[in-house]
């Protein structure tokens, strides 16, 4: 079976700074992956390469077997993404923006996406009048439109009110059950523990742990995270 996402010896270097150091990763369809790591661990850089917004210095990234750098448009057809700082059209309403995305994607239930993120009542207001949280909800709703094969969410639950966050998490879980792959980057270990099937930990640009959440146990994820982070610190 073709992997939903594959990182093949991916390296990203800025001058002398190694942001991502030879990541090899393969994610199956229908998996909810929590991506955790401290600030500067390489999470956003990895996800931006997956979204096609950055190019690897070495290696390749595939989405459903499509090389993201070689076939950017084809790869994006399989992707729904919320970058760390989503960009939206300020002079469109959320409903108009989602209708536009649905047209680009070739379909999608705009009403359901608005309802899911709790934007229904504000759907006709211009995005420029929205709070940060509402903008993030709009970006989330747009990413989920048309049920793309892979959902990439970079800190996408930050700033959401608790009821909305709960609704979105449940919807993401259902998406996984339907065969979509979800990659959620977050600092919140509890979120990963609650919704993920698999956790990938990054430190200093490397994968330091890749485990099934069910194998870790209820109290173990945070401990494992801290242990692996400590192991990657250079000896003084």
């Amino acid at each position: 079976m073709t992997a939903a996402v594959r990182f093949e010896a991916v390296r990203k270097v800025y001058g002398r700074v190694v942001a991502v150091d030879r990541i090899d990763l393969s994610l199956e369809p229908g998996t909810f992956v929590g991506l955790i790591g401290h600030n500067g661990a390489g999470k956003s850089t990895s996800l931006r390469m997956l979204m096609g917004l950055l190019r690897p210095s070495e290696g390749r990234v595939f989405v459903r077997g499509v090389d993201v750098a070689a076939s950017p448009r084809e790869a994006r057809k399989h992707l729904g993404a919320v970058p760390e700082e989503p960009s939206l059209y300020p002079y469109l309403s959320a409903k108009e923006f989602l209708e536009f995305v649905a047209e680009v994607r070739g379909g999608g239930d705009v009403g359901a996406a608005l309802e899911l993120t709790g934007l229904g009542a504000d759907a006709d207001r211009l995005i420029r009048e929205y709070s940060q949280g509402m903008r993030r909800k709009t970006a989330l709703a747009a990413a989920m439109l048309g049920e793309p094969g892979v959902l990439v969410l970079d800190e996408a639950l930050n700033g959401l009110d608790p009821p909305s966050a709960a609704r979105v998490k449940a919807a993401l879980r259902r998406a996984c059950d339907r065969g979509q792959t979800v990659i959620l980057s977050t600092h919140v270990v509890e979120t990963v523990q609650a919704v993920s099937d698999r956790v990938v930990m990054l430190a200093r640009g490397r994968v330091v742990a890749d485990e099934r959440v069910s194998d870790i146990g209820s109290a173990g994820l945070e401990a494992l995270f801290l242990q692996r982070i400590a192991e990657t610190q250079p000896e003084s």
Partner: peptide
Amino acid sequence: GEERAVLAQWPVDP
């Protein structure tokens, strides 16, 4: 431009 910032992540026809 703004179009690149918004559209670069979507499967638009360039």
